[in-house]
Amino acid sequence: MTDSDDVWKVNRERDGENQKFVSNFPEPGPVGKVFAPVAGFGVTIRNFFKPTVTEQYPEKRDTAMPRYHGRHQLNRYEDGLEKCIGCELCAWACPADAIYVEADSNTPDAQYSPGERYGRVYQINYLRCIFCGLCIEACPTRALTMTNDFELAGPTREGLIYEKQDLLAPLSEGQLDAPHPMVPGTTDDDYYKGDVTQVVDEQVAWVRENRPEEPTLPENRKAETARG
């Protein structure tokens, strides 16, 4: 054990040494000393001779780097069921308190995600979000990921609170919008493991019966395409 007096002595000596500023750079030579006052322009002058990188945004829109932390997305399984189970872990992980979630029970009449629980309310406040991505790491189902979309500005505060429908992934061909039953004979585990790869007829039939107007039904999609 160090005697506390010793500690203080060591500290005092170290502090004394730190009073003097010693640069890490080597002493400049005589030429260097002459150009020292304008040396700072070096970078500027060098860039006169390089191609310009000014982006013509928004006329010309470039894409961000693949791992750019942009707007969030709530993903879906292959059959269109939502991955989010409303566990609030993203909200908990968020250092800026930007996420608000309220969960609810799936029912046979309204099955939004595999299993018992789904996120009924999901909001991200983009005035608070600092795009750290901690929510993405917290999400146990990979429901939440970030996209490359960086265009997050708007005239109102309310408009920057994104709701669940603003964040849900778009439905690609072959996916059927929730709510609809899970693939018969599967459990939520099968979904997590990725064993559900497509919509099955029972699900389509269920939606057809309960929501014949659903735009993601194959026939409605076809009609939509036909109309152009």
Binding site: G86, E88, A91, W92, E102, A103, D104, S105, E116, R117
Partner: peptide
């Protein structure tokens, strides 16, 4: 109370 909230809410 099932699935209604988390204690930190």
């Amino acid at each position: 109370y099932r699935f209604r909230s988390r204690p930190f809410d």
